[in-house]
Design a protein around this nucleic acid. Structure first.
Lengths: 108, 108
DNA sequence: TCCTTTCATCGATGGATATCGATACACTAT
DNA sequence: ATAGTGTATCGATATCCATCGATGAAAGGA
């Protein structure tokens, strides 16, 4: 009988502690909010203008108003944007901490 | 008759040129590749170990081998990882340029 | 050659999502 | 109050995706 002790030839060692599952889900949820061209464009616009009202986004994206509202809700639920109502209009802005968390995950 | 010339009260001006649609789709496709907890964890692991064989990932993620292979394909198709076959094993590694592009999009 | 191991692909399925029209809600002005 | 406008939600539908078992392909060892 060949003892076959087979030294543990790890192809790749777990160099550092793997990411916590709950944290992976958090990050994935936020990346998913960016997994749509319209939402990428919205975030890009918000990054350039600090604040933006929905009426302007409706005009900019050749999509129905409910669809834009849906995308904004997805970004809101992910914590990537925040909204404020002033009078008739709703204004949206980025949440820098959340965006920064994603950037940091990508090796920032 | 009140002319109602309504000065163009732009809620928010388009401060800079909006992102090109084709570029938004490119970015969204890559973010979509990260829109899954398992894939976030894989990328996190690759970022820590430089190189990793599939057999190790299969052992690490409590998912079936085809499922892991599927996730690796998604990451490959998005250009976020690359693979090399050496003998029996396939080794995966990050593609730093692609990851960097995403980081830059997030305000890097 | 045959067998084993490693990895990729295929086919199916349950669940999520993007989109729209219709509708409800919130605010302003008359 | 009533009307009008800006925004959110609802309901429906077509498409996409994560997951699995089964199978195929490729490499190495007996």
């Amino acid at each position: 009988m060949s003892m076959k002790v087979a030294l543990p030839v790890l192809c790749c060692g777990p160099a550092t502690e793997p990411i916590a599952p709950v944290e992976a889900e958090q990050l994935a949820a936020r990346f998913k909010a960016l997994a749509d061209p319209t939402r990428v464009a919205i975030v890009n616009r918000l990054a350039a203008t600090d604040e933006c009202c929905v009426c302007d986004l409706n005009a900019a994206f050749d999509l129905s108003q409910p669809t834009i509202s849906h995308h904004l809700k997805v970004l809101r639920d992910a914590g990537l944007v925040a909204s404020t109502r002033r009078g008739t209009w709703a204004y949206y802005r980025l949440v820098p901490e959340s965006v920064g968390q994603l950037r940091q995950t990508l090796g920032g």
